[in-house]
Simulated scan of single mutants.
Amino acid sequence: MARTKLNERQLDVLRRVCHGETPITSDDSGLAATVYALRNRGLVTTTRTDGRWSAAPTEAGLRYLAHTDATPAPCPSAYAPSTAPDAAELIIRLQQSGGTLHITNPIPDERARWRRALHAARADHLVPDGHHLQHTGRNKGDLVITLRPGPPPRHSTPSNETVPVPHDLPLERLHPAAATAHIPACPDCQPRTRRILHALCHAAEAKNYTIRNPESVQQPAC
């Protein structure tokens, strides 16, 4: 019998060892530390063949799991435990909770730990195939993490607009910002550079941007 109560990750791995359809082996490298912790408690054993180990339950492990699963669980809450998990445990919790974890207004440090677990799950490719992670409450309020089927939503990208540049334009017809700007270009390039800047100024103003020259810009030598 284990000397201390197992956490949810250890219980999940013990259930897989005892009743899983496929054995846990050294190929499941992300579970190795948990398997070793269960072995140290006498709940599982590992046998090695051809350089690979596989886990199997002990009698103590079977008794512990039978006793734990027979104990009535508290009423399920809509909210996840406040302790932030590591990346692998985050995915397990999401799968066990039906795909959504709701953390009520966590303190900043706790919120940051949940977000680090979320980022690590993506970066380490722990998200199950055919699914993606989403979350709301990045900086304030309740933090809700969801494991959703399908590819992640595509972020909209700006359209590839072209800005027409006049081939020739007298200085007096240039946009004031283009006419007076200090431009780090050689004298031969100045006219076309100012026409490009003129076109960009008008394109920006068409989108309700305000154009102005910096108060002081040092012109480099050509």
Rank of each mutant, 00 (worst) to 15 (best):
L94F: 05
P76Q: 02
A60S: 14
P81C: 00
Q96Y: 07
P74W: 04
A78E: 13
P76H: 13
P85N: 00
R63T: 15
R93L: 11
Y79E: 10
P72H: 03
A66E: 09
Y79I: 10
Q96S: 11
P85R: 00
G99E: 04
D86Q: 09
L62D: 04
I91M: 03
I92W: 03
L94Q: 00
G98W: 11
G98T: 02
Y64F: 12
A84W: 03
A60I: 14
A80I: 04
I91G: 05
A87P: 05
R93T: 14
A84P: 15
C75Y: 07
T100Y: 07
P74L: 09
T83N: 05
P76C: 01
P85H: 00
G61F: 06
S97G: 10
P74T: 11
E89D: 14
A80N: 00
A88R: 01
T68A: 05
R63S: 15
L90I: 12
L90W: 05
L94S: 07
A78C: 10
S82M: 07
G99M: 03
I92K: 02
R63M: 12
A60W: 06
D69K: 01
A70Y: 15
G99L: 06
A70P: 15
A70V: 11
P72Q: 04
Y64I: 08
T68Q: 03
P74D: 14
G98S: 08
L62R: 08
Y79H: 12
A88E: 04
D86N: 13
G98H: 13
C75S: 06
T100P: 11
E89R: 01
A80Q: 03
A73N: 02
I92Y: 10
A66Y: 12
A80T: 00
S97F: 00
T83E: 05
